[in-house]
Simulated scan of single mutants.
Amino acid sequence: MDYIDCHECKVVDIPVGTLGIIGMRGCEEITDRVDNYLTQWRLERHNIQNPDIEVPGYLLDSFKIGTVCPRFGTGEAKGLIKQSIRGHDLYIIADVFNYGVEYTMYGRNVPMSPDDHFQDLKRIIAAAGGKARRITVIMPMLYEGRQHRRTSRESLDCALMLQELTSMGVDNIITFDAHDARVHNAIPLHGFDNIHPTYQFLKAMVNHVDDIAFDKDKLMIISPDEGGMGRCIYYSSILGVDLGMFYKRRDYATIVQGRNPIVAHEFLGSNVEGKDLIIIDDMISSGDSVLDIAAKLKEKKAKRIFICVSFGLFCEGLANFDKAYADGIIDKVFTTNLVYRPEELRQRPWYQEVDMAKYMALIIDKLNYDQSISELLNPAQRIAALMNRVNEKNNKK
């Protein structure tokens, strides 16, 4: 849809609706950064391209919409939106794994669980009351994303979550590095975008590892299990380096916490001696598996080991990673800022944060105009340009 000024013969795109960004509790930091990018870009674009044309809601000091979920003493809550959102194109950012926020229940401070965060998300959607023109939920790590398929008589929580959100009026769901993107089959008539931060990880490595070389004789990609082969094949193919894989040998006669325990990690791949290795995965939960893999690779005389995961949960603390770093097993752990990272993690010498705020802002900016994000989803050209810069830098040494 276009707005035409007949006198000036200027044409400017019209957004789907006035842009509104809601950051759920615990997402304030990344929401502020996304908002700053969007306000800056739109002011610059307006001044350069169409300084005389005014599109209502295009230029605002902030696109953030104020919300709150106050709680009663029993822990019950309600959702409240503090301003009108009629006709808005709403983007709700929700980190359901942020355990760093608390609420009071019966006089006790209780950390918010994924269930609590998801309920608050639904409360805000319900508070909108159907008045928004369109609602997009940006949930970087899917709620119940690991419970995506049925292997026995058990619940399908992730599929139910997606169906519940769409039944409440959510039009699109955006997530990053889904554990299994096929869960989209639960809502085939609604928008679902699974975005991989491949370029952002490689750019962070280039910026923080001075002598990294994208050379098949010096670098190798490692998949920690069979389920992660898809993302690792992409890295291997686009960088032109070899790929290795571990498979998990499990004890299928035993069940511990609902899962068959891992007996051993077995490696399949070429010689890793003297090479830098990048272990790619979607998340770190306890970290035991990835550290076991790193130790086995060090035994095979790998040079340096870098771990790149989208979501660093560190459910059992940081002590095991501290020890692995001190023992020279790992060199660096890269995770995105899409989920909560406690300050103690950010201060670790082995940790490096990968900023996703600008990428998220670009996606929101495109979608607000109903423009294609295919170019953003496929970073092949940007990765190729990055590799060329690195190779030129290495050749000059």
Rank of each mutant, 00 (worst) to 15 (best):
72 F>C: 04
330 I>W: 05
309 V>S: 13
302 A>T: 07
307 I>T: 09
214 F>D: 03
6 C>H: 13
148 H>M: 10
89 D>F: 00
277 L>K: 02
112 M>G: 02
397 K>L: 12
325 Y>G: 06
380 A>K: 15
215 D>F: 06
209 V>P: 09
254 T>Q: 08
386 L>T: 01
119 Q>H: 11
216 K>Y: 04
333 V>K: 12
59 L>T: 01
366 K>I: 00
340 Y>Q: 13
125 I>C: 05
300 K>H: 05
240 G>N: 02
366 K>Q: 14
381 Q>K: 14
253 A>T: 12
125 I>K: 07
140 P>V: 00
47 N>H: 11
4 I>V: 13
112 M>A: 09
175 T>M: 08
38 L>K: 08
395 N>P: 10
297 L>K: 10
21 I>T: 00
305 I>N: 10
226 E>N: 14
169 G>Y: 09
363 I>D: 10
60 L>H: 07
114 P>W: 11
149 R>H: 13
129 G>D: 15
374 S>G: 15
121 L>K: 13
50 N>D: 02
106 Y>F: 12
211 D>S: 14
172 N>I: 07
293 I>Y: 01
260 N>V: 10
179 H>Y: 06
244 G>I: 00
278 I>A: 08
322 D>P: 01
33 R>A: 13
284 I>Q: 02
292 D>W: 06
183 V>N: 07
290 V>S: 12
234 Y>V: 08
194 N>H: 00
45 R>Y: 13
244 G>L: 02
142 L>T: 05
186 A>M: 08
176 F>L: 07
115 D>S: 09
115 D>K: 12
108 R>Q: 12
338 L>H: 07
43 L>T: 11
140 P>D: 08
24 M>P: 04
357 A>Q: 03
54 E>L: 05
280 I>E: 00
104 T>D: 12
